[in-house]
């Protein structure tokens, strides 16, 4: 038997490739604001610094970071669960 990974339901996806800080976080934050508590956002980005700063800032704002994953040479995927309005 292979690994059984719990499926995470993605409610919204944004692609912020090409953006740099602070607009990476601005876009991610606005996306979270438009979601309901409990929903999950998938962020696709290619700015390395943001792969560290977005999870940190989201946690500072009371949201939950479910996953930060480098998916290829240039891109990352971050999953954020909205826990707080």
């Amino acid at each position: 038997m292979g690994d059984v990974k719990p499926d995470i339901k993605i409610d919204k996806k944004i692609n912020i490739k090409g953006l740099v800080c602070p607009y990476t976080f601005v876009k991610a934050k606005l996306a979270v604001e438009d979601m309901e508590v409990g929903e999950t956002l998938e962020i696709l980005l290619d700015y390395e610094e943001a792969s560290r700063s977005i999870p940190k800032s989201m946690e500072d704002h009371g949201q939950k970071v479910l996953k930060v994953e480098k998916i290829n040479d240039t891109d990352w995927i971050i999953l954020i669960k909205k826990e707080k309005e």
């Binding site: 602070p22 934050k29 606005l30 009371g62």
Partner: peptide, 21 residues
């Protein structure tokens, strides 16, 4: 927000007390 507004107000929007709302 327009792209210009996102840039103009970015330092406000990233504040938890302000945000887009």
């Amino acid at each position: 927000f327009t792209e210009d507004q996102l840039q103009r107000y970015s330092r406000h929007i990233i504040l938890p007390e302000v945000g887009g709302k």
